[in-house]
Design a protein around this nucleic acid. Structure first.
Lengths: 208, 208
DNA sequence: CGTAACGGATAGTAGAACTATCTTTCTGAG
DNA sequence: CTCAGAAAGATAGTTCTACTATCCGTTACG
């Protein structure tokens, strides 16, 4: 198919597709002549994936490229597959005050307490510490107990999630599933949390 | 205190503080003379809250202002308090294809199945539908069963979360807790999910 | 007393994510 | 065969966001 059809099928404007091609978010089409190219189903799929990462996941163009690049580079170990996921979290440079040091300690404690095996290079550690540091700075230290609930929930979900990833028959499929699930999973969890909160609050307020 | 100290205590540059004042994210200091103002602890706290919403929550300046405005406007009902939360999700305008209609239906089904009381105006409905629509478009329909796991987890967490909110002694405190918990909770849950996934994947790979 | 900081106003900047235009070449209906 | 419309690729322009810098008259303070 040509670029017009690609645009039709995905709802992405042609200039945007050209932009994505320039940015290497989308591989070039197969040239049939110096200025004619053919695109296939892989392009449709890739374009939808890009839009999902950008629109739903809120990833920047460069983060998206990073994720896609690492997805391709995944060879055959879970280790290399997981690295694609690491590019999702944008690196944060914290101001290292007392609250931050305390937060880092709390993260280490939590990981130890749960018996989790999490590498130091996992950017989620820093993200979590940053959030905890803000809790402290805002004087909401009494929210820390919630952390254990979140951790339990995350632990339970991880089992099902890794199940799904491992159920894929090949490596490419596994790493794409991981990326999709991570990004869309965050969005879904966030939405569900908000809905459950409203529901629970409503229920308790109406039936005391 | 004067603006320099406010800057020192929060790590936010003076020009940025001035910018936030202009944008009404921060109330003006009390003027002691035409060009001298005093800031208090409330300013320190508010500034930290703004930074948490922007840095950790990834909210835009306008969304942040919206949240803060609604937080103030909350009178005394859970209903009005919850509205502050609604401003956190940035409204998405979906392209209403088949996948989207299907997704909306799924969301309605889920809510009914769970017996949740969620208003149609809750933007989380649209966010969730958008994510589900992308799952369909990407051919990852087999991830739908995960949705029930996420919903269960969200339901469990909501109870503890609403507990914490209701434990606050006054309305201002309740709405601030709700906002903080929503935004930082998303970040924490996201990080924990990633950590738990790595841990689980590592464990299963190492000990077959 | 003088210099440094202040508040307020205005203007400028850097980056991100597109969007538009232009040139040259190619396709495909009539 | 022809020619209007579409394509590829290059370059330039736009819009928005989130700051950042400068200037000016005024005030604090060592």
């Amino acid at each position: 198919m040509r670029i017009a059809e690609l645009s039709q099928r995905t709802g992405v404007p042609i200039p945007t597709i050209k932009f994505y091609l320039r940015e290497h978010l989308l591989p070039p089409g197969e040239l049939t002549s110096p200025n004619q190219a053919q695109y296939g189903e892989t392009h449709v799929h890739r374009l939808r994936l890009v839009r999902a990462l950008v629109e739903v996941g809120g990833l920047s163009i460069s983060a998206t490229r990073e994720v896609l690049t690492r997805m391709r580079a995944a060879t055959n170990t879970l280790h290399s597959i997981g690295k694609a996921q690491f590019a999702i979290a944008d690196p944060v440079e914290p101001h290292e005050d007392e609250a931050w040091h305390d937060a880092v300690r709390r993260v280490d404690e939590l990981v130890a307490e749960r018996g989790w095996q999490v590498r130091d290079s996992n950017p989620a550690r820093a993200s979590l510490a940053e959030a905890l540091a803000y809790l402290t700075r805002l004087g909401h230290g009494d929210l820390f107990p919630l952390l254990r609930h979140y951790a339990s929930a995350a632990e339970l979900l991880a089992v099902s999630e890794v199940d799904v990833v491992l159920s894929r028959e090949n490596v490419d499929s596994m790493s794409e599933t991981l990326v999709t699930m991570s990004v869309l999973g965050d969005a879904m969890m966030s939405a569900l949390r908000m809905m459950a909160q409203e529901s629970d609050a409503t229920r308790r307020f109406e039936e005391p």
